[in-house]
């Protein structure tokens, strides 16, 4: 009987040049619930859809603050994400201790990228089963990075990973031009709208299942150069959802009117 002999470990190439274990890990990312990230000239936002394993359980964390200037959003194995986020927290604290400086985003992203790559090249290890979006600000402004289990990292303008994320990406591609000049609230609005696109018919964004994290450059006249990474979870998210509601119902009303004219 046919058996794939090339997927037993992550160090063996298949004759087609593929490493199946890495691809399987990337499947794990696709099983995770969706997270969206967008960056403008002033802010970087992360939006995530939380899932609860059963009716009686709490919702799985999707956005994690790493340091005061950055946070991550996760899709895939939450336990692997916890290992990575703990590592990132250590690295950023280390930078603050030895240099008195917030770690540059590119630096920490390359670091976890290297760690993930090592896992794909050592016998007896397995790739991380999680994809990350890393958002934050440093001396060179706001940034958004994507991280994959293969160790691949990329800087992005906007990105979505996880289950049904293609719908969100379509939305992001359609509105790409607007993101750069977005204000803080507008950017969150785009994030939530992109997230909404991915929902199946019977689902909607609620206080329980929506989470938002945002960091940015400080507004003129405020103290400090950056606006710290802020996590909106639970009741904090209510105003953001209400703003989304107001924005979308406005456009829908126009749509409904034109429908009437049609008939």
């Amino acid at each position: 009987m046919f058996r794939n002999n090339y997927d037993n470990d992550s160090v063996t190439f298949s004759p087609q040049g593929r490493i199946f274990q890495v691809e399987y890990a990337q499947e794990a990312v696709k099983q995770g619930s969706v997270v969206v990230g967008i960056v403008s000239k002033t802010h970087a936002v992360l939006v995530g859809l939380k899932r609860n394993a059963e009716e009686l359980s709490s919702y799985q964390k999707k956005v994690i603050a790493i340091d005061s200037h950055m946070g991550i959003a996760i899709a895939g194995l939450a336990s692997d994400a916890r290992v990575l986020s703990n590592f990132m927290k250590q690295q950023s604290l280390g930078s603050r201790l030895t240099y008195g400086r917030a770690i540059p985003l590119e630096r920490i992203v390359l670091h976890i990228g290297d760690r993930a790559q090592t896992n794909t090249q050592h016998y007896g290890r397995r790739p991380y089963g999680v994809g990350l979006l890393i958002a934050g600000v440093d001396d060179s402004g706001p940034h958004l990075f994507e991280f994959q289990p293969s160790g691949m990292t990329q800087e992005m303008v906007a990105c979505a990973i996880g289950a049904r994320s293609q719908m969100a990406r379509t939305y992001l591609e359609k509105n790409l031009e607007q993101f750069a000049d977005c204000g803080r609230d507008q950017l969150i609005g785009h994030g939530l709208k992109a997230l909404k696109e991915t929902l199946s018919q019977d689902k909607e964004l609620t206080v329980e299942n929506t989470t938002v994290g945002i960091a940015g450059l400080a507004r003129e006249g405020s103290v400090g150069k950056i606006e710290n990474f802020k996590l909106y979870d639970g009741q904090d998210i209510v105003p953001l959802l209400e703003a989304l509601e107001a924005a979308t119902s406005g456009t829908e009303a126009v749509g409904a009117e034109s429908m009437e004219v049609d008939s």
Binding site: T98, Y99, D139
Partner: peptide, 19 residues
């Protein structure tokens, strides 16, 4: 290695050397 705008200033260097 990463050339986009992040640099160590005198204060960072001093903290490092003191450590």
């Amino acid at each position: 290695y990463s050339s986009n705008g992040n640099t160590l200033n005198a204060k960072n260097v001093h903290t490092y050397l003191a450590k």
